[in-house]
């Protein structure tokens, strides 16, 4: 807990403790969190330090699809469901991901590696259907590309995983 408090306080110190810095702070706190989300304790500290009500801080954190108040996987797969992606087969892309990961949109895999969710337009309509995985965008997706994408992340993680 203390560790969390210190981390957040130093983020706030760096960015500033005025209410207009809320979004920047939320983004950074989420980025530094291992589970890709803003925890309740973190939000309480932020609300206290910025002197804004917790309800308002939560209102902002729950408004933006890039922010999350629920635990997420290390890789957050955001499927664009704006019109151009939807028209170009976004619905199928969603199904490919659901099949290969064994979860539905809004869920996280048991190993905590992936979560699947929708997002609004990510600005790559020329590559529709597209998804965003953490900070990277992948476009022109089809079944093969989706499978390759998930495979490559899984392999990369196995290499890094020394826990056994």
């Amino acid at each position: 807990m203390n560790c969390l408090k210190n981390d957040i306080e130093s983020i706030i110190e760096k960015i500033g403790n005025t209410p207009d810095k809320l979004i920047e702070i939320l983004i950074e706190v989420q980025r530094q969190s291992e589970e890709n989300y803003i925890s309740k304790d973190a939000l309480k500290i932020i609300s206290k330090e910025l002197k804004i009500s917790l309800s308002k801080a939560y209102g902002v954190a729950s408004f933006y699809s890039m922010l999350s108040t629920k635990k997420r996987g290390r890789y957050v797969i955001q499927i664009c469901n704006s019109a151009p992606c939807y028209m170009n087969g976004g619905k199928q892309v969603k199904k490919y991901f659901e099949d290969i990961l064994g979860i539905t949109v809004g869920e996280m895999t048991d190993d905590g590696l992936f979560s699947l969710e929708f997002t609004g337009c990510i600005g790559t309509c020329d590559k529709a259907p597209a998804v965003k995985i953490n900070d990277k965008v992948y476009g022109n997706l089809n079944k093969e590309k989706v499978e390759a994408l998930v495979d490559s992340i899984r392999k990369e993680e196995e290499v890094c995983d020394f826990s056994f």
């Binding site: 309800s55 308002k56 699809s65």
Partner: peptide, 25 residues
């Protein structure tokens, strides 16, 4: 609640169709 009373117990949460007025969480 926020501006007249300075309390802020409730706020708009979530977005679009899911938006509702409620306390945090």
């Amino acid at each position: 609640c926020s501006k007249v009373q300075g309390v802020g117990a409730i706020y708009n949460i979530n977005r679009s169709h899911d938006m509702r007025i409620a306390p945090a969480y």
